[in-house]
């Protein structure tokens, strides 16, 4: 047994005379078995040094461009066409129930909610006149319930409305409020506005709270009104924006 094993071990790897060719039993082997393996090449690093390319700083022109885009976008967002479906929107047949998607931390009605920007879930179309001939007939009643299917040119009933361009509202509107949301409240209330959290009801509740409020009874935020800001500036890193 041992001699035979020895014999097998012996000529296993043989260096032939020519070049650096190694053979086992007459078959070429693709690597060098006598290679020094101590300083073997390292595998390529998983996260090699990478120089993150940085963009050139914006030129004045580009900044101007972006500013213009932003102002346009803001006026679109403040306008009647912008919609936010949000979490409460009923999408799909089954529709998730409001209670299921209710966020117990942020979702509680707060006093400051009274000032939050009200987002539409459906565009408000009755604020301006339309050129009906550019709309398909089936949308005419949506755009203007009084529209007659005559010729597509504005009929006299829509003449009362005028375009609203931010910055060029009529004087009284500007004086009343510049937010543009006021207009919505003044306007005719949409009958099937299906947003449970929004609307005046919430506000009314808060008004009641304000009058004989239980929070005030605790006298916790006793000087709530004017000094709220100072209070907040002082320490307020907790609780986000809810001060009463």
């Amino acid at each position: 047994m041992p001699p035979s094993a020895k014999a097998r071990q012996g000529p296993r790897v043989k260096k032939e005379g020519k070049g650096d060719l190694y053979r086992i039993g007459g078959v070429d082997i693709p690597y060098d078995p006598e290679l020094e393996l101590d300083n073997k090449p390292k595998p390529t690093p998983l996260f090699p040094e990478y120089k993150v390319p940085t963009a050139r700083p914006l030129t004045a022109r580009e900044k101007d461009q972006i500013a213009k885009f932003r102002s346009l976008r803001d006026s679109i967002h403040n306008g009647p066409l912008y919609t936010v479906l949000g979490d409460n929107a009923r999408v799909g047949k089954s529709g998730n129930k409001p209670a299921a998607s209710f966020n117990p931390f942020e979702g509680m009605p707060k006093y400051s909610q009274r000032y939050t920007k009200k987002r539409r879930t459906i565009p408000k179309l009755d604020t301006r006149p339309y050129v009906l001939k550019f709309f398909p007939r089936e949308l005419w009643s949506t755009l203007d319930p009084t529209a007659t299917e005559t010729n597509g040119v504005i009929d006299s009933s829509t003449k009362g409305k005028s375009l609203q361009i931010p910055g060029y509202e009529k004087f009284n509107d500007i004086d009343a409020d510049m937010s543009g949301d006021e207009g919505e409240e003044k306007g005719p209330k949409d009958p099937d506005e299906d947003d449970p959290l929004e609307g005046e009801e919430v506000d009314d509740e808060f008004d009641d709270d304000d009058d004989g409020g239980d929070y005030n009874a605790e006298q916790y935020f006793d000087d709530g009104g004017d000094d709220a800001g100072d209070d907040y500036d002082g320490g307020g890193d907790d609780g986000g924006g809810d001060y009463f």
Partner: peptide, 9 residues
């Protein structure tokens, strides 16, 4: 980004 979620949907 400009016209909101309903429209984009």
């Amino acid at each position: 980004n400009l016209y909101g979620e309903l429209t984009s949907r």
